[in-house]
């Protein structure tokens, strides 16, 4: 069967099945199981309304449980196991972890991840805030915003190709086609540089890609927050003689601090999971390894499920504080 036909059939079956399930389950509940008529009508309606939420929630709970909750537990267990020939597994305690901690590549990935986590959210949020503030009152600000926001729609892989062209280096005696080397030579650089092979620096060149993508996100949200600031506070500051920088840093920024934190944490999570950029641009060579790519290497190249799962658990561990904080906030709001 042609995949497109298969896809079409699946859409019909999947979507039809979903609608059929919800419709059928409701009809069954109201007409067959607890009909809202006869002597027990009142009690039946109450009973039906007790069950109905679970009909609506059923598929979602199933999918969430199977695809997100169960894997967390399963990966946790796998990280203490070793894969034996013939699909068997053996419990090995903390051996996967201790092996992993002893690996230089893991230390490198941890170091780089910390670097990414420090630089990317800070840079993307600052650029986003800057862009939001600068474009706010410009007549053509929306065009500029659209362009800065645009990389959001571009895949990490696409962005990797885009930036590989930016970083491209040619031999010294021919024309440079990468704009970075072109500018570097214009600025008096001695010879074209292979930017992605210079340790430590190359991590920053990879981070530039993610910053380029995430700045638009930060800008859109912070721009909305800036517009939500009450005018009176700014007017009062102007009357009191505050200069533009004081207004920005002492009046505006403190008022949108909550939003800045949300943007910061959202980008932090995106940074933690970054995989495609490193995979496509350097695949962890030249000391650019990060956790997510290290994990992929362990799972699918080295076929070591135990260590792969252990490194996945490290990523989970790093996310956990944000998870707890989010849940805490959500609960506070529900009350």
């Amino acid at each position: 069967m042609h995949p497109a036909v298969l896809g079409l059939i699946t859409i019909v079956i999947g979507v039809g099945g979903c609608i059929g399930y919800f419709y059928g389950a409701n009809v069954f509940l109201d007409k067959v199981l607890f009909p809202a008529s006869g002597p027990k009508a009142g009690r039946n309606i109450n009973r039906a309304n007790m069950i109905r939420p679970w009909i609506f929630l059923g598929p979602a709970i199933l999918a969430l449980g199977l695809y997100l909750a169960y894997p967390v537990v399963a990966t946790f267990i796998l990280s203490f196991q070793e894969r034996l020939p013939g699909n068997a597994r053996a419990f090995v305690g903390f051996e996967n972890y201790s092996k992993m901690f002893a690996e230089p590549k893991f230390a490198e990935a941890m170091f780089n991840n910390v670097l990414w986590l420090t630089v990317v959210p800070a840079a993307a949020t600052s650029f986003g805030l800057l862009a939001a503030q600068l474009t706010d009152r410009l007549s053509w600000g929306n065009i500029s915003k659209s362009i800065i926001f645009m990389p959001m729609a571009i895949s990490f892989v696409g962005a990797a190709v885009i930036f590989k062209l930016v970083y491209e280096a040619r031999p010294e005696d021919v024309a440079q086609i990468g704009i970075l080397n072109h500018l570097y030579l214009l600025a008096g650089g001695a010879e074209p540089q292979q930017w992605l092979t210079i340790p430590l620096w190359n991590s920053f060149f990879l981070m530039a890609v993610l910053i380029w993508i995430q700045t638009g996100f930060a800008m859109v949200i912070l721009s909305a927050a800036l517009r939500g600031i009450p005018e009176e506070t700014i007017e009062a500051a102007i009357i009191d003689g505050a200069n533009p920088f004081q207004i920005f840093f002492k009046i505006k920024v403190p008022q949108i601090m909550g939003t800045i934190v949300v943007v910061w944490t959202t980008i932090t999570i995106a940074t933690l999971k970054v995989f495609d950029i490193v995979f496509a641009m350097t695949n962890g060579q030249w000391e650019t390894q990060v956790l997510a790519n290290y994990m992929y290497d362990k799972l699918f190249v080295a076929q070591d499920w135990g260590m792969g799962s252990a490194s996945a658990m490290i990523i989970m561990l790093l996310v956990t504080p944000i998870l707890v904080w989010n849940v805490y906030n959500a609960r506070k709001e529900m009350r």
Binding site: T75, L299, A312, M316, N326
Partner: peptide, 12 residues
Amino acid sequence: LLVVPLQLALIP
């Protein structure tokens, strides 16, 4: 679950 990394789900 919003923030659970996809990476955890691969092998299971």
